[in-house]
């Protein structure tokens, strides 16, 4: 499915508008001429193999990187025209890895999300409590946040992002460190935010999580958008097989109305000699 042409909805203001953007990082071109619109009220999932440019695209939208060409607009305004405070009022970012350099308590960290927002302070306690609850870290509120497990850290960061109360949420692999239950919980609460009108962009490695929770999938490979649309439209076995260089089958979820992607054997697996060099330059021994 082709991306909607930017001219089609010239009047409507999208939450995020990426217009013919290219990005070079460390001398390597990681994004080629990307056009993307993300709408309010939807979860847009960025999927694709390693090194496809998913996280680069997300940090570009977050304002961390400057595009070589093209421009990014948040709610109609060019990213480069927005101040740091205005950006913080429009978008919250959940990074892949979280840093914490002093022994703040979990609740203090969560509170930091709105510390510099111009939001009514009398709502702080309510919002912080609700965020702690949504991330299921209420019982950790007084814990030293530097002693948490990876999953607890990720949930703390998620709760902090929630307290920022922005209309746009950018999440970079939020579920990577989480167990099954918390993966579901996190994406469900993200879904509620989208229903309430937020625009959510989430990088996901797990295609089945993306299929189950996202409204719109964007498949990236080699810095280009290969396909976008609904999960059923994008998750096509042949296309995924080509993009991931791994044969897959796409079946239907037994309960939910969404596809499931399962890996299949490579037809040539048995014929593969020991120690072949893959295209990544990685030598693997098959025995």
């Amino acid at each position: 499915m082709n991306p909607p042409s930017p001219n089609t909805f010239e009047n409507a203001v999208s939450a995020i508008d990426v217009v013919s953007v290219s990005l070079t990082l460390g001398g390597k071109r990681v994004l080629h001429d990307i056009d993307l619109r993300c709408e309010y009220g939807r979860i847009t999932a960025l999927i694709g193999p390693n090194g496809a440019g998913k996280s680069s695209l997300l940090s570009l939208i977050a304002g961390d990187e400057q595009a070589d060409t093209g421009e990014v607009r948040l709610a109609g305004d060019r990213l480069t025209d927005l101040s740091i405070a205005e950006l913080a009022a429009r978008r919250a970012v959940m990074p892949q890895d979280s840093v914490l350099r002093f022994a703040y308590q979990v609740e203090e960290v969560v509170r930091m999300g709105r510390a510099l927002r111009d939001l009514p302070p009398e709502q702080d306690d309510t919002v912080v409590t609700a965020s702690l609850h949504a991330a299921e870290i209420g019982h950790l509120a007084t814990r030293d946040a530097t002693t948490l497990s990876g999953g607890e850290q990720a949930r703390t960061t998620f709760a902090r992002v929630l307290t920022q109360q922005t209309p746009i949420l950018l999440l970079d692999e939020p579920t990577a460190a989480l167990d099954l239950r918390h993966q579901e919980r996190l994406l469900k609460s993200v879904g509620k935010l989208a229903q309430a009108g937020c625009c959510v962009v989430v990088v996901l490695h797990d295609l089945n999580l993306a299929a189950a929770h996202a409204d719109h999938l964007v498949l990236l490979a080699e810095g280009k958008i290969q396909a976008q649309g609904t999960p059923w439209q994008v998750l096509d076995a042949e296309r995924l097989g080509n993009v991931y260089r791994q044969p897959v089958s796409v079946i239907s979820h037994p309960q939910r109305d969404c596809p499931i992607v399962v890996t299949c054997d490579t037809p040539s697996d048995e014929a593969t000699p020991d120690g072949i060099t893959t295209q990544d330059g990685i030598t693997r021994a098959y025995r």
Binding site: A62, D64, I84, A85, L87, A88, A89, R91, A92, V93, P95, S98, V99, L100, R101, F102, Y104, V109, M112, G113, A115, L116, R117, R160, Q164
Partner: peptide, 11 residues
């Protein structure tokens, strides 16, 4: 304390 990048994200 969240790191420079995340501090910037929060304003």
């Amino acid at each position: 304390a969240l790191g420079e990048r995340q501090a910037r994200h929060a304003g």
